[in-house]
Structure formats: C-alpha cells, structure tokens
C-alpha cells in the first residue's frame, strides 16, 4: 500500500484582530474589506493588545463588534475628540477612529480638523462612499455634483447644496497632519495600495509623528442602486477623477519606514 502524506499549508486565516462574527454590512459593501485590512495590519504590527478603537455613528457604528480589541463608541462626529481623550491619558496605546464621510466630513468636521491641527497622535480610517449609508442614502458632503440621492432626488445641485469636500486635501494643509493619503477599495490593486497606506498610518502613530488619516473610496451598492460590480466601476470611473488617489502629506521621517 502506498502511504500518501499531505503537507498542510495555511493559505488563508482570519486575522486575530478580526472577530469571528457576521457583519451587518450589505452584500458588496467595502466596509468588510477595510476592516480586514486594518485587522491584518494590526496583526502584522503585533499591536492588538495595545489598541483602543473608536467607532462612530453611521454604517460602521457596530465596528466594535467586528474587531477583536478594546473599543468605545462615539457620538456622531465626535470620534476624534474621544480618541484625543484616550490617547492623552494612554500615550503608549494605539488609538484609531473608524469614521464615514457623513460622520467625519459633515457633523464631525470641527473635531477632525482640530485633532489634525493639534497633531494628535492617532490614526483615522475614513471611508468615503459619497452618501449617508446607514440612514438610507441621503446627500453627504462628499456627494458628487449631479449625484442622485434620497435627499438630492434630482441630483446634487451645487447652486443649492454647494460642492463636495475633498477631506484628505483639506486636512493635508494642516501642519499637525503627518500622513494624509487617499486610496480606493474598488479593485485588487487599489486594495493592496490601501493596505500599505493603513500600515504607514499606524507606523506614523508608532513613531509618534502625529496625526494620520487614510481616506478610502468605498462603494455603497444598496443606496446607489447598483450591483456591487457596477458600484466598483462607478468608483473607478466617477469618484476617482473627483477624488484622486494620492499622497497629500507624508512626513519625511516616513521615507525610512517600510510598509
């Protein structure tokens, strides 16, 4: 009889920083992708036990259930202030906020600008899906000109509702910001780039360089009324031209850090 042995090789496993739980996100949503990337980076850096996450209000309100480390949950828009409070009393911990565009760039614009200007040594993961997802797809500060949402039913009219905010570009003007970039989650190449950026953002915090933020262009197939595949194409074809993938602020000390 011939004995056949199989060598077991792990090709996929759940990051330890990722909880073994089912998310409430819609099919095709990129929140799951962003969560996974953050969890992988935290595992790779070995910082899970030193993490305190701050969840925000919006679709990612339950992020605390999906990550496997200490978490608090902030009032709408106030996550950077809560993160400041945590970081100032526990400067050797890693503090992350996870916010959407309604939370960060509308109701929480004051808190995020102030935290960045102070050079608060925290990392912000900022998902921009150009609408308020949780409440059913209303116009957000990031909604593109002409984009139809439930509160801009004929398309965003810039004469009445003004123009979208390019958050990363805006925050990059602040001296306290050390790492501010935009990435996208609409295809594998961009997802790999996003992971590197998330790593560099946490490295920024690790080295005490100050405020770091990664804006991630994301899909919202449910509220956009598209299939997940159409939504991914829409990000690449419509969102990226308005919100370019770029590094807007990179502290010189980060040049020597490999992500």
């Amino acid at each position: 009889m011939v004995q056949t042995t199989f060598e077991e090789q792990v090709v996929y496993s759940r990051p330890i920083a990722f909880s073994d739980s089912q998310t409430h996100y819609c099919p095709g949503c990129t929140h799951g992708t962003a969560h996974r990337l953050v969890a992988e980076v935290i595992d790779e850096m070995g910082i899970r036990e030193k993490m305190v996450g701050v969840a925000s209000v919006g679709c990612s309100v339950f992020a605390y259930n999906y990550f496997n480390f200490d978490f608090v949950q902030a009032p709408h828009g106030r996550a950077p202030a809560m993160a400041t409070g945590i970081k100032r009393v526990l400067p050797d911990r890693y503090v992350m906020t996870y916010q959407g565009d309604g939370d960060l760039a509308s109701i929480g614009m004051g808190e995020i600008v102030a935290a960045a200007a102070r050079g608060e040594n925290i990392t912000v993961i900022f998902l921009n899906n150009a609408n308020y997802g949780m409440t059913g797809g209303q116009m957000a500060p990031t909604t593109l000109p002409g984009q139809k949402t439930s509160s801009s039913p004929t398309g965003r009219d810039v004469e009445l509702a003004g123009f979208p905010i390019r958050t990363a570009e805006l925050l990059a003007t602040l001296d306290g910001a050390s790492y501010v970039v935009r990435r996208s989650l609409h295809d594998p190449k961009n997802i790999r780039m996003a992971k590197k950026a998330i790593r560099l953002a946490f490295e920024t915090q690790k080295h005490g360089l100050g405020f770091s933020l990664v804006e991630l262009l994301s899909v919202c197939p449910t509220n956009w009324g598209m299939t997940p595949s159409q939504a991914q194409d829409w990000v690449g074809e419509v969102m990226v031209p308005y919100y370019p993938i770029n590094d807007f602020k990179v502290h010189p000390a980060l040049a020597n850090i490999k992500a």
Binding site: V72, A74, A81, M82, G85, R88, G110, E111, A114, R118
Partner: peptide
C-alpha cells in the same frame, strides 16, 4: 491638559479619557 476646540470637543475628550 487639552484646550479643546469647543465644549463638544471637551466633553467628548472627557468621555474618551473616562472610558480608560
């Protein structure tokens, strides 16, 4: 010590620090 951007900022810094 942080002089916050507003009372909204201050109370939420308190909230965060109190959670620790």
């Amino acid at each position: 010590f942080v002089q916050a951007e507003s009372e909204l900022g201050a109370v939420n810094m308190v909230y965060g620090a109190a959670c620790t």
